[in-house]
Design a protein around this nucleic acid. Sequence first.
DNA 1: TGTCATGTGTACTACACACTACACATTTCG
DNA 2: CGAAATGTGTAGTGTGTAGTACACATGACA
Lengths: 112, 112
Amino acid sequence: MEFGDYIRRVRQMHQQQDRGYSLRQVAGRIRVEPSYLSKVERGLAAPPSRATILRLAAVLQTDADCLLAMADRVAEDLCAAIQARPQLMAKLIRAAKDQPEATVLGWIDSAS
Amino acid sequence: MEFGDYIRRVRQMHQQQDRGYSLRQVAGRIRVEPSYLSKVERGLAAPPSRATILRLAAVLQTDADCLLAMADRVAEDLCAAIQARPQLMAKLIRAAKDQPEATVLGWIDSAS
DNA sequence: TGTCATGTGTACTACACACTACACATTTCG
DNA sequence: CGAAATGTGTAGTGTGTAGTACACATGACA
């Protein structure tokens, strides 16, 4: 799914129950120009910066990590965690990549 | 440790046994201008792009993930793995962040 | 002693990123 | 009906990224 299509859909969902979700209003709340958000929604402009995507996720009440992923980005705290122990984390992620979700969830569960 | 300091040190290690590791020679092999590599080594220029760092890691026979981390970057395949399953991977990394190395290694071990 | 290689200084550049500014044509609704 | 709000088109902008180009001084070495 394209980033623009997705955020347009989510925004319009909200808009149906709350007229505070017009393109202009949302643009105002995430502090960008309406014309820019319009282009992003239609895929005529590349997805915004990480910071802007985070504001958008908050306003649209959607998962930030997913939204970042659609924009080919990764949250800053995840990058930091990898950079703090690069070899360990690289090994972990490469191992997790080929595991079914249940297995990975098992690991996480054993942590808490 | 600074990126520049580190690669200079590693390069000079090699240089002591192999005169094929002069700044100019290494620059040639990773396909950048010597003056640029010089600036990078002394911290007068920001670390190079991901692709250039990978070539450098290969030439210096040092761990690519570590070198990338020093440059505040993350390997592309790790980003891709996160983006493929953003919520799961985000949860995993945030869980692993606070675990001792042995625990994480245990998870990895249970995978193979 | 001359030439070759080494590291460095200065100046510059092409391109992409992440937007802004503003005018315009519709649509809504009090 | 008229005013306000809506989405969009065109043009332009400042900043950062990732380097290149080339001259220069120094040192090795044959």
